[in-house]
Design a protein around this nucleic acid. Structure first.
Lengths: 280, 280
DNA sequence: CGACCGTTTGAGTGCGGTCAAAAGAAGTGG
DNA sequence: CCACTTCTTTTGACCGCACTCAAACGGTCG
């Protein structure tokens, strides 16, 4: 069980931890969690894979509650989230916070801030987690691999789409619907990261953090949470949440599943255009 | 005055129209509005510039109120906005709409949807406008120009930062503060697109559209608009808005100016790494 | 065991939503 | 150029969702 990491792995979803434990145990048979996400959708060659593996070459365990980066810090690094949950958020002068995005295993952290001198958002571990920091200058190399650059560009654009969806949820929906959206979003993203997730997961969010994500107060978040249980839409045992009526919850939250709409055929055009450039 | 375009140019901010009119009159001395935005910040070579110019090779005038793309349409094209204002928004089943982003001359339109099979958001012209559609497969070529790919990647990430800022405004701020944020954001973005903009601009938004952007009702938007005038923060003559006390308005809206924090020095690493790849 | 943090519940308040009507502005057709 | 329609803006009155303040309860850790 990965000796040397002085924190409690049992706080992490077991399979995610296993994913990392396996990696250290049999490095030749597994690959990085972000690299795996890419290869699941796209065929990449050996050098492209090698680059992705370098991004997560230096895993680092962090404990729940640890602030990974603070808004305003020099933005010289980004991270791969290898295990656990992380949130990115911003603070207002009065101390109130807004969660901008939740991050799950396989996500890249702090990528928006790569374009800035200073981090635009803070990062905090919601559960014990494993992150892999990398120097942002490392990214420079990726632009010499046209297809990989295209893939990374599409990932960034796809995240703009889902960010827009969250924006719409925040602007149009009632507080209850925003919590519904949050839950369905978590469920779908955990599923796509871990095929074994069905209808329940370990929620690493306090009422306060749910509130900061949905843009409401913790008190109201508590009330609406219990309302969702009373409605029979979700169930709750300890920190384990079960989505009982997923279609109803998705409809309530106006959730649009974007995962199935991702477009990769046009990436063939990149290959063709690369060949043309090489040939010409 | 650009004969052949059958709509009223006088509805556009004069300088923006001039920008386009000049281009058609003396094509050899000017460049595309997006290309100009890139070259203002980055040094690019001839072939990179040629690629950018191709993006806006087919200008197309559209009238105010025209729906450029509809959510769900096949996403085979994107656009350069050459003149006028455009909004991207999404609809909910009940007909309510949320504006995701306002677009000004020099912005790229529908880029997030490039990663999808179908457009994730609708686009509508807020004023008479000029757009340049281009096939998204054209983007494939850009990934063979490492530095340009890096620039475009950074632009996308920078937009994720500002999208996060709008998200925070929507989640944390009062309705009044969100309108303040909206106004300051418009002012700053118009300034960076047009150096002649000082403290006033022609607002191409109805109360309804302001409301859809700030996530409130048109009635309340009207009340708060007049409250901002009563507070002496803004002034209004017809559709021309003057920002009277910009610092106060920026503070009220918790506006963070990201423009000055854009980081380009690390792009040198791309050049170096390109040289290394060529040399090695 | 006591201190601390997160959660829950209650009561009262207010910001922003809803409904409605009238005045004003802009577009349309004769 | 005017009359008509339609959309936008404004104002008033009322309502309700979500916020605030406060206190009690429960789990966790030193």
């Amino acid at each position: 069980m990965s000796p040397g990491f002085g924190f409690k792995y049992h706080l992490l979803p077991v399979r995610l931890v296993c994913g990392y434990a396996l990696r250290t145990a049999t490095p030749e048979k597994t690959m990085g969690v972000f690299a795996e996400r890419v290869t699941r959708r796209f065929r990449i060659d050996r050098s492209e894979l090698a680059f992705l593996e370098r991004l997560e070459a230096s895993p680092l365990p962090v404990k729940r509650g640890h602030t990974i980066v603070q808004e305003g810090d020099p933005a010289d690094r980004a991270f791969v989230l290898m295990a656990g949950w992380v949130m990115s958020y911003s603070c207002f002068p009065d101390g109130s916070q807004q969660v901008r995005r939740l991050h799950f295993p396989g996500d890249l952290l702090a990528m928006p801030s790569v374009s800035m001198r200073h981090h635009a958002e803070s990062l905090e571990a919601l559960s014990d987690a494993v992150i892999a920091p990398f120097d942002k200058r490392l990214l420079a190399e990726m632009f010499n691999m046209p297809r990989l650059a295209a893939i990374m560009y599409m990932f960034a654009q796809a995240e703009r789409v889902t960010a827009g969806d969250r924006h719409a949820s925040l602007g149009l929906d009632s507080a209850k619907a925003r919590i519904a959206y949050l839950l369905i979003d978590i469920l779908h993203r955990l599923r796509s990261a871990d095929g074994q997730v069905e209808n329940s997961f370990l929620l690493h969010l306090t009422r306060r953090q749910i509130a900061q994500t949905a843009g409401i107060t913790p008190v109201h978040a508590s009330r609406l949470w219990n309302a969702l249980i009373a409605d029979g839409l979700i169930r709750c045992v300890g920190r384990t949440v079960s989505i009982v009526r997923e279609p109803s919850l998705a409809q309530l939250g106006h959730y649009a599943d974007r995962d199935g709409d991702l477009d990769f055929p046009w990436l063939r055009a990149v290959e063709d255009s690369t060949k043309a450039a090489v040939a010409g």
